[in-house]
């Protein structure tokens, strides 16, 4: 349904050109949930905004690539054609629900407006549809809450309203940019559950952008791991969580605090800091932090290579080499030998 091919998104800043998205390709099929995981500065948010063409141009520009949605390349469409697709076919929800809602209009009016922009119907029908949407996203007493203003809603409720607005016209694809990061864990659990229900009911494909591997493991069918503007690993959730084949994914999973850890169990570090996108390191972007990096990694910029059915990783180590390296390191960790 959606196919991104060799997309490059660059941003012109005073410090130089930032290669926020650097040659990314992936596909999303109808009804699928694709998780895009990465740290801040990995380009995941810019990627999401690129699909919606929401990055301001300039300073953003797209020197290469295609974003094909149902046969049309979104990069070639006019602003008018894009507007038809935004909201109608692809909807987006954001991290901060408060700033995405207009504070001076009632929730109901904003919802009715969203329904009317994309569908021809009477105002009365639109209102009925709005109430239905609010019920769908689990807002208690929706009739009355239609007349409330955004500030009268809590963070979790606002995110529900945003999801309702996104659903207003039955989009085929929903892009969720860190939808639960601003929320508390118990509220996050509610929203994630809601998104799963919505997907079942509406059959919407979801692109879930997050920094939280836990959220991805709960939600996604397919996972893309991003690091400094690139996809460094792609695979099913099982591939990513049980058979990580790129040192970054593997180290990241190892470094996370876990509930099933021993009390006071020491966490395993990833050394160093995320790279600067203006002047990324030579060769493999991850090599300065990689526990297995060799001199070769300084020169070779690895491409995504096949590691299994639908499983790709960008690392010069072959699957076998990586496995033995992993074992060696895990063994060393157990014995407490410093790396």
């Amino acid at each position: 349904m959606l196919e991104v091919k060799q997309l490059k998104t660059q941003i012109d800043t005073n410090e130089g050109v930032v290669k926020a998205v650097d040659g990314v390709s992936f596909t999303v099929e109808a009804g699928q949930t694709v998780g895009i995981v990465g740290e801040s500065g990995s380009g995941k948010s810019v990627l999401a905004h690129s699909i919606m063409q929401l990055n301001p141009v300039p300073p953003t520009f797209y020197p290469e690539g295609e974003i094909i949605f149902e046969g049309k390349n979104l990069l070639n469409l006019s602003e008018r054609e894009l507007r038809k697709i935004r909201g109608n076919e692809i909807a987006m929800i954001f991290q901060d629900p408060m700033s995405s809602l207009n504070p001076v209009f009632k929730i109901g009016d904003q919802l009715v407006e969203a329904v009317l922009t994309h569908q021809k119907m009477s105002r009365q029908d639109a209102r009925a549809r709005a109430v239905e949407l609010l019920t769908d996203v689990g807002i208690p007493d929706p009739e009355r809450r239609m007349n409330d203003y955004p500030h009268q809603f809590s963070g979790g409720m606002r995110q529900r309203v945003l999801i309702a607005i996104a659903l207003a016209c039955n989009p085929k694809l929903l892009i969720a940019d860190e939808p639960t990061t601003a929320l508390d864990v118990t509220i996050q659990a509610q929203i994630l559950e809601l998104m799963r229900d919505i997907q079942k009911k509406y059959g919407t494909a979801i692109i879930m952008i997050t920094h939280d591997l836990g959220v991805v493991s709960q939600m996604a069918d397919k996972v893309l791991v991003m690091y400094s503007g690139r996809i460094v690993e792609e695979g099913s959730v099982e591939d990513i969580f049980y058979r990580p084949s790129m040192p970054y994914t593997w180290s990241l999973l190892r470094s996370l605090p876990r509930l099933d850890a021993e009390a006071h169990e020491r966490l395993i570090n990833i050394e160093g800091q995320p790279p600067n996108l203006v002047s990324p390191p030579k060769g493999c972007n991850f090599h300065p932090r990689c526990p297995f990096s060799t001199e070769q990694c300084l020169e070779v910029d690895p491409e995504l290579t096949v590691r299994g059915d639908g499983h790709f990783a960008a690392c010069i180590l072959s699957g076998q080499e990586f496995d033995s390296e992993k074992k060696r390191m895990e063994f060393a960790d157990k014995k407490g030998v410093p790396q």
């Binding site: 941003i11 800043t13 005073n14 410090e15 930032v18 801040s40 500065g41 948010s45 300073p59 991290q95 901060d96 963070g155 860190e178 990061t181 601003a182 929320l183 508390d184 996108l277």
Partner: peptide, 17 residues
Amino acid sequence: STKKTKRRRGTKQKYAA
């Protein structure tokens, strides 16, 4: 310092909870 810092600002706020 244009967009980059702004984006980072954004990410830090999201954890404020």
